[in-house]
Design a protein around this nucleic acid. Structure first.
Lengths: 188, 188
DNA sequence: GCTATCCTATGACGAGTGTTATAGCCAAGG
DNA sequence: CCTTGGCTATAACACTCGTCATAGGATAGC
């Protein structure tokens, strides 16, 4: 079944966002996914690297899909959905889970590591979605890029702060400030 | 010598900001610091937990000192020094190093993990320094807290984005936007 | 029924982990 | 001189890690 394969990807994504890639072992991913260890290298001949890269891509694409959908109602709605999404991840896991893309980005890795490449693409994709929406609402193109980076960076950083502080204050405060900022620079 | 002790703390901080705490082994910290493994448990009877907590505190206090000093010239100067600091960490390590406080915040840990507690305090301390400076320059107290959280969160997130993308664009763009924002809300 | 193909089960490999114990060095203090 | 105490060296403990090989089972097509 290619069903076990998907279980492994989803399980790996869930573990990476809790513990990071380095601390996520294939054995535990297999157990956590109800999938035999022996099958891991059947589905992912590239081993841990391949599984990790696919897990990050899976998580990133999920977020991209949600963000793109919500942005159709405008940049502020997209922004708020983005923050609400991360807020749910945090509160739904008792402050144990965060962003797998961020987790992969902060571990030492050869510069050609596929998972890090996927992470970079994810950040770029999220920023691009936001920037495009801002442009469509009258924001200067160059400034739209800057603001989009600010939103993504602030959300990612706030998630980490919330995990350490065991409060959603950082996320809530950042969301409030950015909502005000984006509302002010967009028309309607 | 208590000198070896300090070497271990500094070495651990340097390794944690590159690989994260989980992937940082005591053996490598000892080697990297030119200190014998046997001494580690002499200086840090609490083992890895104690060493990691102290390393994070050491790094966090260093940043706090720099931030406090630069903030004396005003919030915008402090903000810019904060971003310049992280930019130097990234470019000076060929995108290999990041923020040890962030690294520790992102790994699964018991909620009473001392290193995570120290990380939470670091985020709070940095935010408090910024918020106080904003208040002294005419910003409404509640809003000062929000803006301070935004600055810290955005900087931390941008550092991670830069590492993944192997560009300082995110940091530069975020710094530019926040400089404009803080300049606009402060008097003078 | 038979066979070929996909998947699983099991165990092993070498390496690396945190940690502890024991024995040794080597400089001060008497 | 000799002893005491802080520091170091070495080896061992009981893991876990990624990875691979090999053997077993199921399941589909004929």
């Amino acid at each position: 079944m290619t069903d076990s394969r998907q279980q492994l990807v989803a399980g790996a994504a869930d573990m990476i966002r809790r513990r990071g890639r380095g601390a996520t072992s294939i054995r535990e991913v297999a157990k956590h996914s109800g999938t035999p260890l022996g099958s891991t290298y059947h589905y992912f001949p590239g081993g841990k690297h391949e599984l990790a890269a696919e897990a990050v891509r899976y998580a990133a694409d999920t977020v991209s899909g949600i963000l793109a959908a919500k942005l159709r109602a405008g940049p502020v709605d997209g922004l708020q959905a983005f923050f609400a999404l991360w807020r749910n991840v945090i509160t739904g896991s008792d402050f144990q889970a965060g962003c797998p893309v961020l987790a992969v980005s902060i571990e030492e890795a050869p510069s050609d590591d596929p998972a890090v490449t996927v992470a970079a693409e994810a950040f770029t994709a999220w920023s691009a979605l936001l920037a495009e929406s801002l442009r469509q609402h009258g924001v200067d193109p160059a400034r739209a890029d800057h603001l989009a980076s600010l939103v993504v960076a602030a959300a990612e950083g706030a998630v980490a702060m919330c995990r350490a502080q065991r409060t959603t204050d950082a996320l809530d405060h950042v969301a409030a400030e950015l909502t005000a900022l984006i509302s002010a620079v967009t028309d309607r």
